[in-house]
């Protein structure tokens, strides 16, 4: 029963990781590509880490919860890096299918004047 659950978690986690990267390779412009890795991949790795917690906790050597740290860390950092990447792309005027908001592309839109390109 436990092995069954573990196997399902592992395969589902790996599948989500794969779909995230598939989105990265397949979609048309940068902003849509951003969605795959930030969500699908994070959840996929999360599922794999939960499987790891279950696996190491049920081997009779006591609870092993430190994989939760990696999950927690990924869930905190993934949105931050996605936001920074989107901001950098807006700044560089990367090609986009959706019309980007005009004010975000202004060179002076940042609080500080940028220097040296």
């Amino acid at each position: 029963m436990l092995e069954m659950m573990l196997s399902v978690l592992i395969v589902v986690g790996a599948l989500f990781t794969f779909i995230g990267s598939l989105g990265l390779a397949r979609l048309d412009d940068f902003y849509t590509r951003l969605h795959g890795p930030t969500k699908a991949t994070t959840l996929g790795v999360g599922a794999l880490l939960i499987a790891s917690v279950l696996y190491f906790s049920t081997r009779g050597e006591g609870l092993s919860l430190h994989e939760i740290l990696v999950t927690l860390f990924l869930f905190i950092t993934a949105p931050v890096s996605a936001h920074l990447l989107a901001k950098a792309a807006l700044h560089l005027r990367v090609r986009s299918i959706a019309p980007p908001p005009p004010e975000a592309e202004e060179p002076l839109a940042d609080t500080r004047v940028r220097t040296g390109d």
């Binding site: 969605h35 969500k39 949105p79 936001h83 901001k87 975000a104 609080t111």
Partner: peptide
């Protein structure tokens, strides 16, 4: 809010006005 939006349904927060 920005982090929550990035983690949930098909949305990524991209830019905060100054």
């Amino acid at each position: 809010l920005a982090n929550t939006v990035s983690l949930t349904p098909g949305t990524v927060s991209a830019w905060l006005s100054p």
